[in-house]
Simulated scan of single mutants.
Amino acid sequence: MKLTANTIFIPGATSGIGLGLALRFHRAGNTVIIGGRRQALLEQIARENPGIHTVVIDTADASSITSTAADVQKRFPQTNVVITVAGIMLPENLNTADFLATAESTVHTNLLGPIRLIAAFTEFLAGQDEATIMTVSSGLAFVPLPFTPTYSATKAAIHSFTQSLRVQLAATSIQVIELVPPAVQTALMGQEESANAMPLNDFLTEVMAILEAQPEADEILVENVNFLRFAEARGSHDEVLSLLSGH
């Protein structure tokens, strides 16, 4: 993936990693369109960052994805990068059925949302000379956090789906990249001040450096996520799972 002269659509980019990537790509010389549910927040971000474009989208709503994708493709016909960053992370207690509503919401947002976005953009992106679909999974795709079981499961599914997507699109102009974050200091699970999470700016700086140094990379792995990503290969999966379980 080239780092400049792209037109990049990032739904779910009103905070955290999504907004951070949007601003980094904007400063690098790309046209950036961010999407989110709250019009007022989008307008605020646009005022504070002249040149950033915004659209309203609810990535948990299939009709919103379809209509907004059509709007983006019409208004920004040079769009050649889509980053499916939107997601939620909520705790669940699996001892009773009460977790089910949270699980269903998580699947709609974290799994069906990215799949629907990809479905809405793949044929369009295949018409561009150089295009990229970047999915966002998690280190928890490889070792789950038992406190957030459905979140971890959706991220494992995103990893698997991304691998298949890469194979099926190999003959097209679309590069498929998977961004695999560790715990990062964002509002996700209230980790803004967590000592166990990577500072957001450090994460973004490392991600951009990897993209620059390895433009053909399939996975973007900062150093902090490797203990999760390679736990199975290193024979440390059970140990890491126990650590994540608080044991």
Rank of each mutant, 00 (worst) to 15 (best):
E43F: 05
E43W: 01
Q44D: 14
Q44L: 10
Q44V: 03
I45W: 00
A46S: 12
A46Q: 14
A46G: 02
A46D: 02
R47S: 13
R47G: 08
R47K: 14
R47Y: 07
E48T: 07
N49I: 03
N49W: 05
P50G: 10
P50N: 05
P50I: 03
G51N: 09
I52N: 01
I52V: 15
H53G: 03
H53M: 10
T54L: 08
T54Q: 13
T54V: 15
T54A: 14
V55W: 00
V56E: 15
V56H: 11
V56S: 14
I57R: 06
D58K: 05
D58Q: 09
D58V: 10
T59G: 10
T59K: 05
T59L: 12
A60P: 09
A60W: 00
A60T: 09
A60D: 11
A60F: 02
D61W: 08
D61M: 07
D61S: 14
A62Y: 10
A62S: 12
A62H: 12
A62R: 15
A62M: 11
A62K: 14
S63P: 01
S63H: 13
S64V: 08
S64M: 08
S64I: 09
S64H: 10
I65Q: 09
I65R: 02
T66L: 11
T66H: 12
T66W: 03
S67G: 02
S67E: 15
S67T: 14
T68M: 09
T68W: 06
A69F: 10
A69C: 07
A69Y: 04
A70Q: 14
D71I: 06
D71E: 15
V72P: 06
Q73W: 04
Q73D: 07
Q73V: 07
Q73H: 04
Q73A: 12
K74N: 13
K74R: 15
K74P: 03
K74S: 15
R75I: 06
R75T: 13
R75Q: 15
R75N: 13
Q78D: 15
V81M: 09
V81L: 07
V81K: 00
V82G: 00
V82H: 00
V82T: 01
I83H: 03
I83L: 06
I83P: 00
T84A: 10
T84D: 03
V85P: 00
V85M: 11
A86W: 02
A86E: 06
G87N: 11
I88N: 05
I88W: 02
I88E: 01
I88D: 03
M89S: 13
M89Q: 12
M89V: 09
M89I: 07
M89D: 11
L90H: 13
L90C: 08
L90E: 15
P91Y: 08
E92T: 06
N93A: 13
N93W: 01
L94F: 07
L94D: 03
N95K: 06
T96A: 10
T96M: 02
A97T: 14
A97I: 12
D98P: 07
D98L: 13
F99M: 07
F99K: 02
F99S: 06
L100R: 09
L100S: 11
A101C: 05
A101H: 11
A101R: 12
T102W: 00
T102S: 13
T102Y: 01
A103H: 05
A103D: 04
A103P: 08
E104P: 01
E104L: 11
